[in-house]
């Protein structure tokens, strides 16, 4: 298993990361290079302010306060699960002690990790949130119509690194190196899968929210 682990941490990770970078840049610039519709109407508000407000609201407020949207109770739970899932995802990827070492290796510098027990709680929250989202997708009649196999595979491929990471940290299954190898293989595969799937929304989101916010603000609407 050591050879598998070394391969997953070495050449496979390298190849996956290069594919991820090329493919994500391809997708982003393919959208940015599309013709943008020119709005010739006289602006009624500040577009930049709208872009910033829209992005900040989307990142900090709406995911955690579903009541603001006046949603029914079940939708509120799913909404909240989505919010917690994305927050946990961000914290676990960037602030787990082990992951700060990965970032240090990639960027040449690192930042302080969040204490492991807190990250552990967020990891558990992510796993639970993913389960809630999967159940919702499987039971909600509208979502069922919209969902294909790739929708469930998205959830599975994101869940696997979290689950294996959680197992590794708590050493629930031995040998540790075998779980570590599966964890790394799952991460490598996720890097390949993301640009091919709708998980790529994590990148587009940071463009679409400000774009929508700017359009709203030009019409003096609350983004």
């Amino acid at each position: 298993m050591n050879d598998v682990l070394a391969f997953a941490r070495g050449p496979l990770f390298y190849g996956s990361l290069i594919f991820f970078l090329v493919a994500m840049a391809f997708r982003l610039f393919r959208v940015l290079a599309l013709r943008w519709q020119v709005d010739r109407a006289k602006p009624k508000g500040n577009a930049v302010e709208g872009a910033v407000v829209s992005l900040l609201k989307a990142l900090l407020i709406f995911p955690f306060f579903p009541g603001l949207k006046g949603l029914p109770q079940r939708s509120a739970l799913v909404f909240f699960a989505g919010g917690i899932f994305h927050l946990s995802l961000f914290l676990v990827i960037f602030f787990t002690a082990a992951h700060t070492l990965v970032w240090q290796s990639l960027l040449g510098f690192r930042w302080d990790p969040i204490p492991t027990p807190i990250i552990d709680g967020f990891t558990a929250a992510t796993i639970l949130a993913l389960i809630v989202l999967a159940i919702n997708r499987a039971t909600n009649p509208v979502l069922r119509l919209l969902s294909g196999p790739s929708s469930y595979l998205n959830l599975l491929f994101v869940l696997t690194p979290f689950l294996t990471g959680f197992i590794m940290y708590h050493r629930l299954i031995q040998p540790y190196n075998a779980v570590f190898a599966i964890h790394m293989l799952a991460v490598d595969w996720l890097l390949v899968w993301i640009p091919l799937s709708r998980i790529a929304h994590f990148m587009f989101y940071f463009f679409s929210r400000p774009a929508h916010g700017a359009e709203f603000a030009r019409r003096n609407a609350v983004p």
Binding site: R9, G10, F13, A98, L101, V102, S105
Partner: peptide, 16 residues
């Protein structure tokens, strides 16, 4: 060859 003694157990063994 495990990526350096001080590079961290989780750090990738090869990165671009």
């Amino acid at each position: 060859d495990g990526g350096g003694f001080y590079a961290g157990q989780s750090a990738p063994l090869a990165s671009p």
